[in-house]
């Protein structure tokens, strides 16, 4: 799949933002007033910025409102509905925290649940696609949710949860890669089933339908060199999980250093997740590539 910056930015930032909202909804940290304002500003900034970025790749952003209508069947629609729900509920909750110094617990829980649900619906947009075997596995929601929670915990400064969540997210990431690398092969779809000619012999794509490029090739066919991908995976893993874990587990003296370390952990995590997300797209093989003899 073409690793479109808009979608990478969207999923990375909004995952982080909703992760933070999740923790805030649970009252973690139970901030109020100006501090709360800062936290919520960050959370909403990330979540909304992500959503906004995602509209950049739309052909007709002005009609985006229509995307709320098909929640019965469409995960993309559900995502929109959940996101608006989560943002509204958490917005109210934030008003309480900032201006009224109060935590409406039930509302917070609902907001937290909606925030997680939003991340889940996002993940399901990808997971549902049988056409992309690397995404079409249970580990995909696990990746999105665990990353979101780990990032949220980091941002929320949830000191006890964060290391565990980071470790879990890292593990999920490794598992996802391991399984994903075999996904296309084990999916049962190959150029033989794609053309229906498989039982006659070995099928090979010959001349493409056109020597020029097209939407499908630009959108679905992106080949990352093996070596390159391995290197990026290392970077993603180290920056996304190993380094943040190290940074927050390193015992340090002093609040400033602690905050500096925490900030570094967040930035590192963000860079790691963005890299991982780039790979998530760039390495995903759409079966349509089979028709073009490409993966």
């Amino acid at each position: 799949m073409h690793p479109a910056p808009s979608v990478i930015i969207f999923t990375t930032l909004s995952g982080l933002g909703f992760g933070l909202l999740f923790f805030l909804g649970l009252g973690q940290p139970a901030v109020t007033g100006t501090v709360a304002f800062v936290f919520y500003a960050i959370a909403f900034g990330l979540a909304c910025g992500g959503l906004l970025a995602s509209t950049f790749h739309l052909g007709h952003p002005e009609r985006a409102w229509r995307a709320f209508t098909q929640w019965k069947t469409s995960w993309l629609s559900r995502e929109g509905v959940c996101a608006v729900g989560a943002l509204t509920v958490m917005g109210l909750y934030a008003l309480g925290a900032i201006f009224m110094d109060s935590h409406w617990t039930l509302l917070g829980w609902i907001g937290a649940a909606l925030s997680l649900a939003t991340v889940f619906t996002t993940s399901m947009i990808y997971t549902q696609l049988k056409t992309i075997p690397r995404w079409n596995m249970e580990l995909t929601p696990a990746v999105f949710l665990s990353f979101s929670l780990a990032g949220g915990a980091l941002l929320a400064g949830a000191e006890t949860a964060a290391p565990w969540l980071l470790a879990i997210a890292g593990a999920v990431q490794l598992a996802y890669w391991a399984k994903g690398d075999k996904a296309l092969e084990t999916s049962g779809t190959d150029i033989g089933t794609a053309t229906g000619l498989g039982d006659r012999g070995a099928v090979r794509a010959f001349e493409p339908p056109h020597t020029g490029s097209n939407y499908l090739l630009r959108e679905f066919v992106h080949v990352v060199g093996r070596k390159h991908a391995q290197k990026l995976r290392m970077i993603a893993f180290v920056l996304g999980f190993a380094l943040p874990l190290l940074l927050i587990l390193t015992p340090v003296e002093g609040v400033v250093i602690k905050h500096v370390f925490a900030a570094l952990a967040v930035l590192s995590h963000l860079a790691g997740v963005a890299t991982s997300r780039w790979l998530f797209f760039a390495q995903a093989e759409h079966v349509v590539g089979l028709y073009y003899g490409k993966r």
């Binding site: 799949m1 790749h57 993309l76």
Partner: peptide, 13 residues
Amino acid sequence: IGCGLCAWSCPYG
């Protein structure tokens, strides 16, 4: 809206 998701979901291009 030109989100492209339908094209993603079509196995046949």
